[in-house]
Design a protein around this nucleic acid. Sequence first.
DNA 1: TCCATAATTCCACTATAGTGGAATTATGGA
DNA 2: TCCATAATTCCACTATAGTGGAATTATGGA
Lengths: 117, 117
Amino acid sequence: MEIENAVAALSALAHAGRLSVFRMLVQASPEGLAAGEIARRLDVPANSLSTNLHILSHAQLVSSRRDGRSVIYSARHDSMATLLEYLMEDCCGGSPEICGQLADTVLRSRCTEEGHA
Amino acid sequence: MEIENAVAALSALAHAGRLSVFRMLVQASPEGLAAGEIARRLDVPANSLSTNLHILSHAQLVSSRRDGRSVIYSARHDSMATLLEYLMEDCCGGSPEICGQLADTVLRSRCTEEGHA
DNA sequence: TCCATAATTCCACTATAGTGGAATTATGGA
DNA sequence: TCCATAATTCCACTATAGTGGAATTATGGA
């Protein structure tokens, strides 16, 4: 991942409105939500939301597909993973015991009900 | 974690210069680096770097301690973990198989040399 | 074709963030 | 005390991001 992509993704998330949208889409994975439904739930004007969804799309954090008159947005887990990997890069080279712990804290706690292959 | 804290952390990282500093500190964990050493390695003016370190500190992404005439900065893994957890929150409630996969992709690849307890 | 709903784009305005030179503060050594 | 090094704060200036009303575009149904 190039630094520009990482900055674009982080900038996209560095905004209370967009972060709320993204988290809502993470929680609505993998079905996604229509733009109108998001606007209704967060009580924001449609045009502002649209701008913010565009920013999230451009940063590749969400994808969209049209379904009739609605446009359905979903979180892109692949890009999320790439971003997190970039933030942690070479963390473990120096001290695996520290970053392994971080890994556990962050993701095991919520993701291992039936997680690893 | 409150959304304001998450936005502060993400905003702090959403800047090429600060992101470079943060990643350098992640890689220099847990010893950390002196401000002057960071400025030298990244070839940035001391005052700009100082401002950026202040922003990262304020967002609790780095901590500092004085050592003689130098100030040593280190990455704060605890805050990092909290932020990542916030981003992924309730991801797994809906679809553990998807988010477990994400967890694997992101962190196992680099962190399991001797990782989990 | 005509209307209603859904979403996006355009635009002007306001607010916030970034930049680096110069001055200041903190510390250690002679 | 005096000097050198390290880091931070101050400041004025420039650049970028956020906002929402109004207009526009896309789609489906009658």
